[in-house]
Write a protein that binds this DNA or RNA. Structure first.
Lengths: 148, 148
DNA sequence: CTGTATCCTTCCAGATACTG
DNA sequence: CAGTATCTGGAAGGATACAG
């Protein structure tokens, strides 16, 4: 059994990987597929070039995005989520639902207090995605036990 | 339907609420029940008093912890998780599992690369907790539709 | 187009001393 | 016991100019 303390340190790491002011935005930019540097930059002009490059490098190092360079002139570089990055999406969505239900609107910023509905189909999809992750947990960590 | 952009801003809020260097530690300190100020401080001596107070105040404002003052001398103040805070725990665990499976050990810090097992019972408990949250989503947001 | 390099400012966090 | 007040250094982050 993983020691409890170790496990909470894992959570800490996860928060470091997606925390900070900009990384979530980059995930959002890439969640629907590959984007060029300029696409991301244009999508979120608030991020300065300096910061964008820095965050992209860190996320690449953490293994949640991939950087592909095309040796052409003018330069062309594409970014996309790795599998780890893709798997992060449903986890973030859970976090969003938690926020939606349990966090007061004052905390969020007032303007999104309007009525909210949730698409049951998407919710079911989300459950399946989470199940997929838990399956991965099982196969990756308990290979020695009998497979479910 | 919640607008997509709004929903991602919810996620951002959630990350703000638990992000930073210290807040997760406070959640950990409180996850097994009420603790006094000095208990927390003693449990994590790395947190300076200045920071501890600051983080506690923010978390209180965000509604994930509660502060109870007993008017006695010497002063006695207790902190505990609110319901929102409690519900956060399983969400964080999912995040930890993601980290455990998809994040390389180089990212985490080398020393916890040892063999890992996962307790199936706890995993099932986790699934139930998440289901509970999704149920809350449904009841809170789609009251007008027919209940499932 | 996709970045680097440099400078400059602001803000955060640690240390320390003090209080009801 | 449970904090506040103040000082200070360093890191994070913005603006701008330049390069392959």
């Amino acid at each position: 059994m993983t020691k409890n303390k170790d496990f909470w340190r894992r959570i800490e790491s996860a928060l470091n990987v997606i925390g900070g002011k900009w990384k979530l935005l980059i995930v959002i930019a890439l969640k629907d597929g590959t984007q060029r540097y300029s696409d991301i930059s244009h999508k979120f002009p608030e991020i300065s070039e300096r910061m964008l490059v820095k965050q992209l490098r860190e996320m690449e190092h953490d293994g949640i995005i991939i950087r592909t360079v095309y040796p052409v002139v003018p330069a062309k570089v594409e970014y996309s989520l790795t599998q780890s990055g893709e798997k992060l999406i449903p986890v973030l969505k859970i976090l969003g639902l938690w926020s939606l239900i349990y966090l007061g609107s004052e905390v969020i910023g007032e303007d999104l207090s309007g009525p909210v509905e949730v698409d049951s189909t998407k919710l079911n999809q989300l459950i399946e995605d989470i199940d997929g992750i838990l399956k991965d947990v099982h196969t990756k960590l308990n290979r020695k036990e009998d497979p479910v």
